[in-house]
Amino acid sequence: MTVAEPDVGEVRVQTIATSDDVVRARQLARNLAVECRLSLVDQTKLVTAASELARNTLVYGGGGSLSGALVQDARRRGVRLTFTDQGPGIPDVDLALSDGWSSGSGMGLGLSGARRLADDFDLRTTVGAGTTVTVIKWTH
């Protein structure tokens, strides 16, 4: 299926290198969600997804960055968040996306939970090279 690329607004970048940066990544997500005028529930879902993904970037990816932007297609507005790291990558994506699976100390809900909370979810990973996760939350 071909999806038309949405128009992308100004891209804001947050480095994710410390636990404080995870908090800043959440704040960036919140600011974009408010600017996009997402509903309160959708704002909460997006910021929660951002928190999970930012933590993954730090803990499993060894740090990386968040690029966030407002996007717009023919019908609606949205917030797009892209988390990138140059970490070890994910050998078994299906396993990593299943509930309860965790290689760390979490509950294993980070990736699978973020996928449920977002409207669009895209994961690209190469073992030994890194992982990029993109989520979009659209206005309804």
Partner: peptide
């Protein structure tokens, strides 16, 4: 707990 937080927690799987 805020209502939006409760909804999000359930969707998250917690």
């Amino acid at each position: 707990m805020r209502p939006a937080v409760a909804i999000t927690l359930v969707e998250l799987g917690l």
